[in-house]
Design a protein around this nucleic acid. Sequence first.
DNA 1: TAGAGTTGATAGAACGTTCTATCTGCCATT
DNA 2: AATGGCAGATAGAACGTTCTATCAACTCTA
Lengths: 341, 341
Amino acid sequence: MMGPVRSVTINDIADHAGVSRSTVSLVLRGSSRISKATIDRVNASIDALGYTYNRGAANLRTQTSQAIGLIINDLMNPFFTELTATIEEMADREGYFVYLVQSNEEPARQHKLCMSLLEHGVAGLIVCPATGSSLETFDRLHERRIPVCIAVRPFASDRFDFSGPDNFRAAEIATDALLKRGHRRIAFLGGERGNPSRDDRVAGYFKALQQAGIEYDPALVVESRPSRQSGITDVETVLSLRDRPTAALCYNDFVAISVMHGLRKNGLEPGSDMALIGFDGMPEAEMSHPTLTTVSLHPREIGREAAELVISRIREPNRDVTRRIQTPQLIVRDSCGTAKR
Amino acid sequence: MMGPVRSVTINDIADHAGVSRSTVSLVLRGSSRISKATIDRVNASIDALGYTYNRGAANLRTQTSQAIGLIINDLMNPFFTELTATIEEMADREGYFVYLVQSNEEPARQHKLCMSLLEHGVAGLIVCPATGSSLETFDRLHERRIPVCIAVRPFASDRFDFSGPDNFRAAEIATDALLKRGHRRIAFLGGERGNPSRDDRVAGYFKALQQAGIEYDPALVVESRPSRQSGITDVETVLSLRDRPTAALCYNDFVAISVMHGLRKNGLEPGSDMALIGFDGMPEAEMSHPTLTTVSLHPREIGREAAELVISRIREPNRDVTRRIQTPQLIVRDSCGTAKR
DNA sequence: TAGAGTTGATAGAACGTTCTATCTGCCATT
DNA sequence: AATGGCAGATAGAACGTTCTATCAACTCTA
């Protein structure tokens, strides 16, 4: 019936209210140099005509933007959604809007998304680098001089601000907790080589073993691309060894929960037959059975810092590069062998 | 050190390549009316100068946009993230970009987000209405004549396209499955009155009971705002009854998993001591212990249809309003009483 | 060789804002 | 009565694109 209505602009408001375009613009931005009477008249016209502010046009004129791009790896992972939730809160509070996208851990897609976000005119970017990220992407961002904060995984982070967890320390803490409970054969299940988070965790695990004087057994470190099922095969790999481990670090909480299923599938009880510790501290960990001992990486803190960093760099583009590292924290529950039931 | 670099524009490219602005614009859009030689020259200049396309300026000129706004209730809920993932895939395939935001089930926030998305110039909107949504929000959208698809929960959906599950049928299916297994006292745990999804499910549950000749007992229907813990108190409410239920429908899979914890906390075993069925069909349901019987609402299908509907309406604004209802599907696992171990 | 096409490229206005500079009254001061 | 200052409002250019109309240089045809 009705064709696409030509949108109501600031000019229409001006005509309707009998003032100039400039005046309407000033009213919209709450200028103090306009009289109460005109303000009221303009606002009345705005209501009457059903006006929507065209932020794109304004951004074009002012060469600014109130959007921040956020690239996460996986929307389905609560660690990233918690991170996202905090970033959105912070951004909102500061008057920014978040364009959220997921890279699916694909560097090519990540590159495309970065370019797309630039075209969409973001004022800054928070990127959780995909495993296998190419330097080219970040070179491009750097030469465009766009404020960027790298989050969660340190990649090319000497040139950009960074907010993330201390993965090395996290694995040390977890390994120590298992050692303290008397375990000598401890596996590390899941994660792919080349993913800096995973590699740092393996390094921390190695260091803790070494300090306890335990020889490192490569057969106990199982690599795999994390999925909802991967933990099952990961744990079966170490169950097939002559000398089985009595405990395992799992790359993240997802893997840990899937390892629980793998154990049950093989007639073993998670927690008592094999002690388990995950990483991330996602809320679901508390709802698993047995409840999951995990090293919380404080996604909300990481998100808060990342948002702060990118916003502060938008405002002050030339300040020094800064790194904010969150200290991880062990949350002891039932899966690490102190089962209470 | 370096101030904010004035961005490279189409004019700079034109100067560098020794052609006109119009020519560069045509090259960017892949026009066939430009000679191979000029195309190459222009592309060379684009690479040399490091140009980024300003989509905002183009949108202003063409009065179009390739962005679709998506408002979901809760980023932390896998049902919505699966929905989102499919919508993003579809949008991407059709050349659209998704602006994703969450309403946190707050109508006021939802209203603000709608207005904000309009200002950011989306071509269309997919909204999963928050519980307690005000009609005003949707009136505003309607008078602005912006293409809108309502998803998941039918609200004001006589004026807008809709894609969602058949909640009534879902509850009938679930209730029948429990009746077939011999249960007579079946509870309905979680969800808030006023949430159309929940109300439809309760109605379907009621209908199935009625058809089986079972009298409806209001004490078995427990209302609560769903959270990661709410199922615990929900189930404790019905455990305190003289005549306890032997089975329960849970408002969604989250609630169901939390109900499992509530049962264990009270010394009961989920599945054998109380049969449980959830709704949504989220991937975690397969990873719980016992594995969760659930009615899948096919979030991916709902997302696919929603994306199709909004894109088709962007292209053809005046076609008739359409509704796409997904038929739910029971996925039988261990929690409904057929435990195999 | 004049006219008609065709191919490739272009000038200038337009999209909806904001910014800079300026203007009009009015009041107070001399 | 002339001057200065101030409050409130405005005209016109500008942001980076695309669109409409037009142009210049060829090639083909009769």
